[in-house]
C-alpha cells in the first residue's frame, strides 16, 4: 500500500489553479522558506499518512476541474504524489497542478526517479522557493521569483492571461471554524488576519485543551 502524508484537503478551491480544483496539502517540507504562510505543514509527520488509492478515489469522485498538490513540499513525497496522480488519472483525466520550492531545472538535472515521474504527470507547475521580500500579487504565486510552467498544452489558452492575484477563498464552516485558501498577495497576511479576527488554530487549541 502506497501512502502519502497529507496535512489537509479541500474539494473545491477556486484560487489555486484554473477552475475549481481538489487541493491536497501534503505534510512535510525540507526547504523551509522564511515567513511561510503554512508553517504548520512544514514538519514531516507520518501520523498523517493516507492511503493513496483511497485518496485518489475520493479525488476522482469530488473534484470538478482539476487537482492541485500543495503543502508542505509535494516533491518531498514525489513518488507517492506521482502514484496518486496516476491513480486519479486512471479514473478521470483531470488537470493536475503542483507547487514546489525547487526549481524545475534542479529537478530535471538532479531529481529522483519519483520526482521525474511526477513532473511527467503535471500540466502546470509553480516552482521556486517563496521569498518574502519579493512577495507580490501574482496569479497563483506568492513571490516574483516563482514561475508558472505550462508543461502540457492543456491550459495553453491561459498563457497570456493577466498575471494578477486570484485572491483568497475564505470559508466559515457550520461549526464556526474558519479557514482561508490561496496565496496571500501581501506580506504578514496570516498574522494580520489572526490578530484581527482573534483566530487560533484549532489544533493548537485542542492541544492546549485536550
Amino acid at each position: 500500500m502506497t501512502t502519502l502524508d497529507v496535512a489537509e484537503t479541500h474539494p473545491a478551491c477556486t484560487v489555486l489553479g484554473p477552475g475549481s480544483r481538489y487541493v491536497v496539502w501534503v505534510q512535510g517540507c525540507g526547504i523551509g522558506c522564511a515567513e511561510c504562510v503554512s508553517p504548520q505543514w512544514i514538519p514531516f509527520d507520518h501520523t498523517r499518512a493516507r492511503d493513496v488509492a483511497e485518496l485518489a478515489a475520493d479525488i476522482a469522485e469530488h473534484a470538478t476541474d482539476g487537482l492541485t498538490i500543495s503543502g508542505g513540499e509535494p516533491f518531498a513525497q514525489a513518488g507517492a504524489v506521482a502514484a496518486l496522480v496516476a491513480a486519479v488519472r486512471e479514473r478521470r483525466d483531470l488537470s493536475v497542478m503542483s507547487y514546489t520550492g525547487y526549481t524545475i531545472e534542479h529537478l530535471r538535472a538532479h531529481g529522483t526517479p519519483g520526482q521525474h515521474r511526477l513532473l511527467a504527470e503535471l500540466d502546470l507547475l509553480v516552482d521556486g522557493p517563496f521569498l518574502a521580500h519579493r512577495q507580490a500579487a501574482l496569479r497563483w504565486r506568492g513571490s516574483a521569483n516563482q514561475r508558472l510552467h505550462f508543461l502540457t498544452g492543456r491550459h495553453a489558452a491561459l498563457r497570456d492571461a493577466p498575471d494578477l492575484s486570484a485572491g483568497l477563498q475564505i470559508e466559515v464552516a457550520a461549526d464556526e471554524s474558519v479557514r482561508w485558501l490561496g496565496v496571500p498577495p501581501v506580506a504578514g497576511f496570516r498574522q494580520w488576519i489572526e490578530n484581527r479576527l482573534e483566530l487560533e488554530p484549532l489544533e493548537q487549541k485542542q492541544e492546549r485543551n485536550p
Binding site: 503543502g71 506568492g142 474558519v178 485558501l181 490561496g182 488554530p201
Partner: peptide, 11 residues
C-alpha cells in the same frame, strides 16, 4: 504554502 489551518473563532 497556500492555505491556513482551521481556526476555532467564536462562541
Amino acid at each position: 504554502m497556500s492555505g491556513s489551518p482551521k481556526y476555532q473563532t467564536v462562541s
